[in-house]
Amino acid sequence: MENRLLITSSPHIKSTRTVQGIMLDVVIALIPAAIAGVVLFGFRSLLVILASVASAVASEAVYQIAVKREVTINDFSAVITGLLLALTLPPNVPVWIPVIGSAFAIVIVKQVFGGLGANFVNPALAARAFLLAAWPLHMTQDWLNPRAYDAVTSATPLVAFNSTGQTALTFKQLFLGQRLGSLGETCILALLIGGLYLIVRDVIDYRIPLGYLGTLAIGTWVFGKPGAFFQGDGLSAMLLGGAFIGSFFMATDYVTSPVTPRGRLYMGIGAGIITLIIRLWGGYPEGVTYAILFMNLVTPLIDRYVVPRYYGYGHDEMARRKAAGGETR
């Protein structure tokens, strides 16, 4: 009997938190936004969401079976990717768009690089960028009017906001998502519920959305009004476009964001600055996708240079080591 005693390195107890549990929390947090999308833009949204999730999960399973790896669809990470991508698509896109997008996200962006934990950019966002480049018309014109469900091809309110610095929409309309936009990005209320849930559950670090939205709001306040400083509408800048869903659900992806609290704040601020530049002075109406993708690429650099203060060194000691170019890590 004695030889059956297990020997492992301490500690011998583990927390109840699991990767699967974390992923499930993210799925739960996205459900209000998905529901809002269906309520605002109708049955069409549900189709897009289901197609996207199904494609993501199926792609993961098929790829893993094909390369003879363990099938890991039960960790919910593919569900998140499919769900996130769907929420960033115009509600009236043809159903093959999310199918192709999710397959691209899972196979090309995630699995080819080694699967969970090994992708270097956010799969859903990379897929969105790919779709935007491949089918720009579908990605920028397939809108539906909220609650009326009729197809519209006009520009989203963000385009007007970027050029004039103001929007005709009321705060209430913005907050409840009654505007043209991607199916999961418009309802701020739903996104806020999900985002706060993730913060309370200690899944995401509040510093990323805080840094991101804060930078965007302050930057827009300073530069947002053409021909004048400090008169921009910082609040609407946060609520329009994809800044909210991006900052709470995309930029906070563990794998592609920094690991330290300070690094995460820098990630948020960096993404906020890039979004601001693209919106105010760039050619695209929205910069959230590219801002976060760029910060994904910068993440290893942030992790290398932004380190926590070690116990027993003191601020002076850390500064001295940095100045000496020695072991700061």
């Binding site: 990767v19 934990g117 090994a118 690991v259 380190v307 027993g312």
Partner: peptide, 21 residues
């Protein structure tokens, strides 16, 4: 499972170290 770089190990380290790396 593979590391997902959630950074929780850094949050809890009483020495301020980065166990992940």
């Amino acid at each position: 499972l593979p590391c997902i770089r959630c950074g929780k190990c850094i949050d809890v380290c009483p020495m301020g170290l980065q166990p992940v790396w």
